[in-house]
């Protein structure tokens, strides 16, 4: 009987500990915030400097953030959505469509997707690798690395970017 009660007690203590030790996801400035599993999830950030990760979702994954954020989105059924302010580092991969909006000094990596659609601010750099359609609109000077076919880089609404060398496009001078 003692053994039964001891085993029961141990089980309950473990369960209680697991309750007390559960850590919350803290989508606030400077913290890591993650969402995975389920059908769709959208991560926000209370302030700037969030480190966001949204992945392995059935349909949609999205991250929104202020400035100085990092965001990863991958392995999603339909679309990854990423929006960010200034000085952000974004990565989107292994999803049919990436949709990205970010401000100045944005560093974006799109890879292993069917379509990557991005609008980036001045002094940004975009890299498309293993992407069928890489559509980038730069609202200021930018560099876009796109060695695949299907590169569509514009400066502003319609002006085509300059192809500085094979696979390297620029707005505002090479």
């Amino acid at each position: 009987m003692r053994r039964v009660l001891a085993a029961l007690g141990f089980f309950l203590i473990c369960l209680c500990c697991s309750i007390g030790c559960t850590s919350g996801d803290n989508c606030s400035s400077g913290n890591h915030c993650e969402c995975s599993g389920g059908d769709q999830c959208f991560l926000g950030c209370d302030g700037d400097g969030c480190d966001q990760s949204c992945h392995n979702m059935g349909t949609l994954c999205g991250t929104t953030c202020g400035d100085d954020c990092r965001s990863q989105c991958h392995d999603v059924g339909t679309t990854c959505s990423q929006s960010c302010g200034s000085r952000c580092g974004l990565e989107c991969s292994h999803v049919p469509t990436c949709g990205v909006l970010c401000g100045d000094n944005c560093l974006l990596k799109c890879h292993d997707t069917s379509a990557c659609s991005a609008q980036v601010g001045p002094n940004s750099e975009v890299t498309c690798t293993s992407v069928d359609t890489c559509r980038v609109k730069c609202t200021g000077s930018c560099i876009v690395h796109c060695a695949d076919t299907g590169c569509n880089i514009t400066c502003g609404e319609t002006a085509p970017a300059t192809e500085c060398e094979h696979g390297r496009y620029a707005c505002g001078g090479c």
């Binding site: 609008q119 359609t133 559509r135």
Partner: peptide
């Protein structure tokens, strides 16, 4: 974001 095949009005972000 800018239009792509399948998203003529742009990709919703």
């Amino acid at each position: 974001s800018p239009a792509t095949p399948g998203y003529p009005d742009g990709v919703p972000v």
